[in-house]
């Protein structure tokens, strides 16, 4: 469904050049849940921003459902974007609109459907995320978990073939995480939606994924089923999935030696 080949992205120029993504290859298959995991700064959000056509890669290509995304013109981009839904980390609901209008927005803008049909569809989508009856609330009146579920309802409003999830369980309580996880699995299995989940919640990724891609410093260090990842011998993977502070992944972001840096400090 989605093929990504040799994706490379750098930010900045000259000395400050930072490689955020290096030779990223992946194949997201139809009806499967693929999780991209990694620590903060590992480049996982950058992958997502490439997939939704916000960032332009330095090199490499992305093919979504047969359409090349990189360097596509406006019409192609619109056509590709109608094929996927995305659930943002913050939900990104429109605060000035009610829940109903939020979910109905893509339907009103992209289809010729009758207003009554749209209202019924909104109710169906809200039922799917278990929030039927919340139609007339404003996003400000909802809890974090509810906002994410409404965001999911909006993401699936147009019955997309692909749904991207940006940190679906970040900042939620364990029960809400469980609810969201179940929704992701249900949607992808029953509606054959291709799901791409970007997360750092290892237990949740292990539970729901068919395939896990682990990123570290912009490179793929592991890819495989949750079983394979769990049984991996790579100490970096073990450190990440066990969440231990000591290991090959340093706690400090600095590349320089601590003592050297202190000695070299200059006060002007």
């Amino acid at each position: 469904m989605i093929k990504v080949n040799h994706l490379r992205k750098t930010f900045g120029e000259g000395d400050k050049k930072l490689i955020v993504l290096d030779d990223f290859n992946a194949h997201f298959e139809s009806g499967q849940i693929t999780s991209i995991i990694g620590g903060s700064g590992s480049g996982k959000s950058t992958v997502l921003k490439h997939l939704i056509g916000v960032y332009k890669p330095d090199s490499g290509d992305i093919i979504i459902d047969g359409d090349p995304l990189v360097n596509s013109n406006r019409e192609t981009l619109v056509r590709i974007r109608k094929k996927f839904g995305i659930m943002f980390q913050s939900g990104a609901l429109f605060n000035s609109l009610t829940v109903e209008d939020n979910v109905a927005l893509p339907l009103r803008e992209h289809t010729e459907l009758n207003e009554n049909t749209i209202k019924i569809m909104v109710k169906m989508k809200l039922e799917m995320v278990g929030l039927r009856g919340a139609e007339h609330l404003k996003p400000a009146q909802l809890s974090g978990g509810m906002i994410k579920r409404i965001a999911l309802a909006r993401a699936i409003a147009l019955d997309p073939k692909i749904v991207f999830y940006d940190e679906p369980s970040a900042g939620l309580d364990p029960i809400s995480i469980g609810v969201i996880d179940k929704l992701i699995v249900d949607l992808s299995k029953k509606m054959r939606i291709t799901s791409v989940v970007v997360t750092h919640e290892i237990p949740s990724a292990m539970r729901i994924s068919d395939k896990i891609i682990m990123l570290y410093k912009g490179k793929i260090i592991a890819a495989g089923s949750p079983e394979e990842i769990r049984n991996s011998e790579d100490p970096r993977i073990q450190q990440f999935i066990n969440g231990s502070p000591d290991g090959p992944i340093p706690f400090s972001k600095s590349q320089k030696d601590y003592g050297e840096e202190l000695k070299e400090m200059r006060f002007s």
């Binding site: 995305i86 605060n95 927005l105």
Partner: peptide, 12 residues
Amino acid sequence: SDEILALETMAL
């Protein structure tokens, strides 16, 4: 709050 990004990704 990413609402403008959301609009864009909804092809609006």
